[in-house]
């Protein structure tokens, strides 16, 4: 019998950054444009993803499974799952978002970007620099000029935390 018999589930191995292996059905990873192309064009059965931490990969696979089970009747449940999914410390959410961007899982990417935006929108400039690991390239004079130009953007309770 040919190996591509319909009904037979193809198995794929994903290898996370710390060499941990995840074995899953190939159909699940087709939600990722990147992996889909690898599977379809190169017919690989094991894909190394050295830039993605295993912890992050676990989360993403969890999402792929839930999303594959999505039907009109459990929409509400899925929405709650999504909410919980991004309810992690900001550092972890950014890791997930970067990985999802790399894997090109478009629906999830939209959702993660919005989640990041919602989490940082009330943050102070200093906190955002820490979160994105950016060093300011403005002089202190230029910075105080900004604050004078649009004082209302710097008013209110700004959040200095990075999580």
């Amino acid at each position: 019998m040919a190996s591509s018999t319909t009904g037979e589930k193809k198995i794929l191995t994903l290898k996370g950054g710390d060499n941990e292996e995840f074995i899953l059905e190939e159909s699940l990873v087709l939600q990722s444009e990147l992996l889909k192309n690898m599977v379809k064009e190169e017919r690989v059965s094991s894909i190394p993803l050295p830039s993605i931490k295993s912890k992050t990969l676990v989360k993403i696979i969890e999402y792929l499974k839930k999303h594959a089970e999505l039907t009109p009747s459990n929409k509400e449940e899925f929405k709650n799952f999504e909410k919980e999914f991004v309810n992690v410390v900001l550092e972890e959410l950014l890791d997930i978002t970067v990985a999802v961007n790399y894997l090109k899982i478009n629906g999830l990417l939209e959702f993660c970007c919005q989640a990041v935006a919602d989490r940082i929108k009330d943050k102070s400039v200093e906190a955002v620099r820490k979160i994105f690991r950016i060093e300011s390239d403005f002089t202190p004079e230029e910075e105080s000029e900004f604050r004078k130009e649009t004082p209302e953007a710097f008013e209110g309770d700004l959040d200095d935390t990075t999580n």
Binding site: Q114, D122, F138
Partner: peptide
């Protein structure tokens, strides 16, 4: 490009503040 996707989802008031994060 990902930073950009996040910035696009922020309200204008936040953008007015965040424009002084980085040139």
């Amino acid at each position: 490009d990902l930073v950009n996707s996040v910035l696009l989802r922020l309200p204008v008031k936040t953008l007015m503040r965040f424009k002084c994060v980085y040139k």
